[in-house]
């Protein structure tokens, strides 16, 4: 088994460990905790009053922020490989990276000027 697969296996084992802990604690708890079902207990909790209507609205701002996030997250993915080898790659790569960052910063500036970052 190569190093490569070992690392994936370690990730899988830790995921398994997390599930074992969650399952184990819930299983252990089911031996101790009481169970007295009453229909009132299973009503959606709204601070004591009866729930009103169903929820169908959320702020559209979150969607715009999500789009901005995708742009910058991809940028970060491109920056990391360069960051590891800054010294070897030297001046040319540095200049390219600065150009790349400035272009993206201009994008942020544009969104800022357009009022996207202003809340409602």
């Amino acid at each position: 088994m190569t190093e490569y697969y070992r690392q994936y296996l370690a990730v899988a084992v830790l995921i398994g460990a997390a599930l074992v802990m969650v399952g184990g604690m819930l299983g252990l708890g089911s031996l101790i905790r009481p169970r007295r079902p009453q229909p009132q207990k299973y009503i959606t909790y709204e601070a004591g009053s009866d729930p009103v209507g169903t929820f169908g609205q959320s702020n559209v701002r979150y969607y715009v922020y999500a789009l901005l996030f995708v742009m910058f997250d991809v940028e970060a993915v491109f920056i990391f490989p360069w960051a590891v080898r800054v010294e070897e790659l030297g001046v040319q790569a540095l200049v390219s990276m600065i150009a790349f960052i400035v272009l993206l910063a201009l994008g942020l500036l544009y969104a800022w000027r357009k009022g996207v970052l202003r809340w409602a």
Binding site: G29, I32, R33, R35, P39, K41, Y42, I43, T44, Y45
Partner: peptide, 11 residues
């Protein structure tokens, strides 16, 4: 926490 009932809302 141990002796709390496990409640899952009907909805």
């Amino acid at each position: 926490f141990m002796q709390k009932e496990d409640i899952m809302p009907a909805e």
